[in-house]
Nucleic acid binder design. Structure first.
Lengths: 107, 107
DNA sequence: TAATATTATCGTAATATTGCAATATAATTT
DNA sequence: AAATTATATTGCAATATTACGATAATATTA
C-alpha cells in the first residue's frame, strides 16, 4: 500500500490531479511566476532568485516540463525556458471547468 | 533534507500550493465532484462510490476540510458534508488570478 | 441501556517527494 | 583542444503521502 490507485478514477480526474500536483509546491509556483515576468529565463537565474540548489531547481523545472507547461529554445548560448501559452490556456480552462461545474444545492 | 522549504516563499505562493496539493489526488477530485452532484452526502456512500476503504475516505475528506472547502451539518441521523460555496469561490478566484497574471512576452 | 450504524483515529507498511552533494553532460569561449 | 559556464543526472537521506486493518468514538434505534 501507499501507491495512489489511479486506475480507479477517470482520465479527466487523473489529469486534473496530475496538473494540481505540479502546482502543489511553492517553488514551482514561484518558478512559473518568475519565468512569466522575464523576457528571457536562464536556469541559473532561478537558482539565485528561488534560493534552492541547482539540481533541485532542475528537478522542479522537469516536473513543470512534464505537463507541457514549458517550451525551451536555445537562444545564443543559454537555454531559454518559456511558458507554453497554448498549454497554459488549456490548463486554465481545465481548472475553470472544474470550479464552474460544481453546484451547491446541498444543505 | 526532504522537507519543503516553505519559509522561502510568499504566503500567496504557499497558500496556492497548499490548495493545489489537496486537488492533487484523483480521489479528492472525485469526492468533490460527487458531493456537488448530491443533495445530501453521507460518507458511507462515498466508500461505495469511490471504492476506497472507509478510513481512507475519511482521511481524504479531512484534507479537503482542512482548506475550508467542506462544511458539515447534522441532518437527521447522518452527517452531511457540503461544499463551502464561499470558500470554493475564493479558491476559484485564486487560481483564476494565478492563471491570468502570466504573460508570454518571452521567446 | 444494549445493539446497531456511521465516522474518526491509531498503527503500520508501501510508495512518493524533496533537497542537495557529487558528478556527468553539453555548449561556449579563449 | 582546454578551460569555462550552464544544465542534467545520480545517489542518498529525510520527510510526506497513501492505504487499510484494527479499534475507538459518536450517534441512532430498538
Amino acid at each position: 500500500m501507499g501507491a495512489s490507485k489511479t486506475h480507479m478514477f477517470s482520465l479527466t480526474q487523473n489529469e486534473l490531479a496530475q496538473v494540481a500536483k505540479v502546482l502543489a509546491h511553492p517553488a514551482r509556483i514561484a518558478i512559473l511566476e518568475y519565468i512569466s515576468r522575464q523576457e528571457n529565463c536562464i536556469c541559473n537565474d532561478l537558482v539565485d532568485v528561488i534560493g534552492l540548489a541547482q539540481p533541485t531547481i532542475s528537478q522542479h523545472l522537469n516536473e513543470i516540463k512534464k505537463i507541457g507547461l514549458l517550451k525551451g529554445t536555445f537562444e545564443g548560448k543559454n537555454l531559454c525556458y518559456c511558458i507554453n501559452e497554448k498549454r497554459w490556456e488549456e490548463l486554465q480552462h481545465s481548472f475553470h471547468t472544474f470550479f464552474t461545474n460544481i453546484n451547491y444545492n446541498c444543505c
